[in-house]
């Protein structure tokens, strides 16, 4: 497995984590829990942006792995 595909896998996991946090933020009934989940969701968004940037960098450096 190439580095790029490993990073892609992590990115996919992060997106799933993001979705789960979003769901919990929406379905929780306690306001404090809602806020905690929402903050977690925003934090994962930041991380996702970072990873995406790194991924495009990798693909630029090693175009043969592009899209794989």
């Amino acid at each position: 497995m190439t580095v790029a595909s490993q990073v892609k896998q992590s990115l996919a996991s992060l997106k799933s984590i993001h979705a789960s946090f979003q769901q919990f933020a929406l379905t929780s009934t306690d306001e404090k829990a809602q806020r905690a989940f929402h903050e977690a969701m925003l934090l994962t968004e930041e991380i996702i942006a970072d990873v995406k940037q790194r991924l495009s960098q990798l693909e630029r450096e090693e175009p043969q792995y592009h899209g794989k």
């Binding site: 580095v3 490993q6 990073v7 896998q9 992590s10 996991s13 992060l14 799933s16 984590i17 789960s20 946090f21 919990f24």
Partner: peptide
């Protein structure tokens, strides 16, 4: 539990990277 496990996995991945 799945969410917690996924978070731990990504965290470990990052440290590895």
């Amino acid at each position: 539990q799945l969410l917690l496990a996924a978070m731990k996995k990504v965290q470990a991945d990052f440290e590895l990277f």
